[in-house]
Simulated scan of single mutants.
Amino acid sequence: MKYIKIKGTSLEVSNIVMGCMRLNSLDVREAQRHIETAIAAGINMFDHADIYGGGECEELFSKAIDMKSRIREKIIIQSKCSIRNGYYDFSREYIIAAVDGILKRLHTEYLDILLLHRPDALMEPEETADAIRSLKKSGKVRYFGVSNQNPMQIELLQKYSEERLLFNQLQFSLVHTPLIDSGMAVNMQIGQSVDRTCGTLEYCRLKDITIQAWSPFQRGFFEGPFIGDMEHYGELNNMINHLAEKYEVTPSAVAVAWLTRHPADIQVILGTTKDSRMLEGCSGSWIPLTREEWYGLYKAAGNMIP
């Protein structure tokens, strides 16, 4: 497992993260086994959100590992808040209450990382920054970040927050590549040249913000996996299968390796509840794809390399 040192912090995180969005589909014993499998594979970071299972996933996680100090000290727990019933909320009152609820469900005194889940168009940055300040001072949250935000949204909040925003969780996979598309086709009159992210990838690298890739196997928003989908991605799957044979791994590992090969030190969030699939994904942590292979996969996914 490859680990990433987060600059300016004491955090050293695995580049593969166990996502807990569907954890409540397991019973306590199954969840315990799944978490222990992740830890044995070298994963030290676990991603939650207050909306996952309406809080059930956080509760189940704490029951499954019994949140004993000897275990808690070895793992990094991240959770997210801001998505409510049909709207987003960055108000101080909501964020403070949301974190209290998260801590109660997880049976822990602190979160290692809190992310603001989806941008709130009605954000008052001074108020949101005050919530961050309060959570840091109280010891309830150690580090902070955002999710699904562009550079100017981050800059607006960072202007008022003395706590550096360290993470940005974004959808990114071999078949969802807006983060790099326009950079591949600068100044060309084609759809790929349209900058849909405002230079988010480059901005995060400049600011030492770690990108966390969610839905690494999905096409579209939640339209199903692209691995094995020969109808829509035949050429891509043929190349993935070829590389899987070369590196003696599964296709899932190749899809993960395409992300981890990027020099931005991207973390990949695996949301599976199957032990075998998680271990397959972990195999992509260190695969040294060549430039030719990396660009070849990008092109096979239907993109232009001018």
Rank of each mutant, 00 (worst) to 15 (best):
G183Q: 04
K207D: 03
H176E: 07
V194H: 02
L179I: 04
F172S: 13
F217R: 04
M188H: 11
A213W: 02
Q218E: 14
I190R: 04
C204K: 11
S193E: 00
L170W: 00
Q171H: 08
T210F: 05
C204A: 07
M184V: 15
L206G: 15
I180V: 09
S193W: 00
R196Q: 10
L179F: 01
F217C: 12
G183S: 15
F172Y: 05
T177S: 11
C204D: 05
G199P: 13
D208A: 08
T197G: 14
M188W: 04
S173H: 07
H176T: 10
D208Y: 04
K207L: 09
R205M: 15
Q171T: 08
S215T: 14
R196P: 10
I211R: 02
A185R: 02
Q169K: 08
C198G: 07
P178N: 02
I209V: 11
S215K: 06
F217D: 10
D181V: 07
I190P: 01
S193N: 01
C204G: 03
L206S: 14
A185Q: 01
Y203F: 10
Q169G: 09
N187M: 06
F167V: 09
V186Q: 12
R205H: 12
Q171W: 00
L201S: 08
L174P: 10
M188G: 11
I209F: 14
K207Q: 06
I209D: 06
F217Y: 11
Q212C: 15
Y203H: 10
I211P: 02
L174W: 09
P178F: 01
L201R: 07
I180R: 00
